[in-house]
């Protein structure tokens, strides 16, 4: 029987087990994918800890990002055929989940892989680039004159945001805690890097922006970093908070935000993906830019499925990763 990673009751990574389950059949409007690669995401940890936009009944399959070949289609599927090379899109997929040898997904949340992009890269695109596209392009309407503060810029989400912001012509200021990742963040295209353990973050922002401040903040951390950069906000700034890596409650810096008329928007791609027009435009834009090389995913390391635990331990521990971590079931 095929194998799937499932979350069980328990603590930490011991909750993840590789379970053999019967081959699932695609239902109405669903396709089944024989998975070649799936990507690990921080959101998986959030889901395990109940700190996520949705909850699941245990034991549960999980995961958002896979690529592979369609090997079966359910009734009423119109856009895909057996043999198509596809990737899955992020959505509120409670009860589904793609981290295993097979994935069954409604066709709405499947997209053809761009030509010339291999399976590993295809499984590495959609969460990070769609999330950044939704915030930076759709909600913030990023313009060339904007400064973007891209927090935790060495992460995969940060890399996607740096690339997309750069493509819009904006000036990207990446942040990172220590010096280890500074060179790497410059390599990914950032114009400036602030090390938050050493620098006065707001003062550096004011200096870099010549007193204008950052109009867009793309932040997976929240407090205490938010308090460090609150003095560097531009008028009408938008803070997209797409995680809580700070490990503490995020406190609203009321005065700084009132002074700059800023807005705090907790941000998730799940709030964008169900708009068909948005989905189509975003996918077209990103696919085109991937094919012509204006955007490119970085892959740090691939693991075989039987080593999934090492993969998660590596994701959890490694501070100096250079892109996505993938598992290859094949």
């Amino acid at each position: 029987m095929p194998k799937f990673i499932r979350i069980h009751e328990g603590k930490g990574l011991a909750r993840l087990r590789l379970d053999e389950l019967p081959l699932p059949e695609p239902g109405i409007g669903e396709v089944r994918i024989k998975v070649e690669a799936f990507a690990l995401n921080y959101g998986d940890f959030g889901l395990m800890e109940g700190d996520y936009p949705f909850t699941v009944e245990l034991p549960s399959t999980f995961g958002d990002e896979a690529s592979g070949l369609i090997d079966a289609v359910g009734p009423q599927v119109s856009q895909f055929r057996t043999g198509d090379h596809v990737a899955t899109l992020p959505w509120m997929n409670a009860g589904y989940g793609v981290n295993g040898e097979y994935a069954v997904v409604p066709e709405y949340y499947v997209t053809h892989c761009p030509d010339s992009i291999d399976a590993n890269a295809c499984a590495s695109i959609w969460i990070t680039y769609l999330t950044a596209y939704g915030g930076l392009y759709t909600a913030a309407g990023l313009k060339p004159e904007d400064f973007v503060l891209n927090c935790a810029a060495s992460s995969s989400a940060g890399i996607a945001a740096t690339q997309l912001a750069g493509l819009a012509g904006a000036t990207v200021i990446g942040t990172t805690r220590g010096r280890d990742n500074v060179d790497f963040i410059f390599e990914t295209g950032a114009d400036h890097v602030i090390t938050t353990n050493e620098d006065d973050v707001s003062a550096r922002i004011q200096e870099i922006t010549d007193g204008r401040g950052v109009r867009v903040v793309y932040d997976p951390v929240g407090s205490p970093l938010l308090q460090q950069y609150a003095g560097g906000l531009a008028r009408d700034a938008i803070i997209f908070l797409y995680g809580s890596m700070g490990g503490q409650e995020t406190v609203v810096p009321l005065n700084e935000m009132i002074q700059t008329n800023s807005i705090l928007r907790p941000h998730s791609v799940y709030n964008y993906i169900d708009d068909p027009q948005w989905k189509q435009e975003a996918i077209e834009f990103i696919s085109t830019a991937m094919q012509d090389g204006r955007l490119s995913v970085l892959i740090d390391r691939c693991f075989p499925l039987d080593d999934f635990r090492s993969a998660y331990e590596y994701q959890w521990a490694a501070r100096n990763r250079r892109g996505k971590i993938l598992i290859n079931p094949g």
Binding site: D51, Y52, P53, G222, L241, S244, E249, T250, V251, V252, L254, N255, M257, I258, N261, S262, I263, L264, R265, P266, H267, S268, Y270, N271
Partner: peptide, 21 residues
Amino acid sequence: EQTVLPELELTARNASLHPYS
């Protein structure tokens, strides 16, 4: 009191918080 951002609830509703004058 400090205002703590209810991040999950706001994310779930695509809601935003605007400190305002």
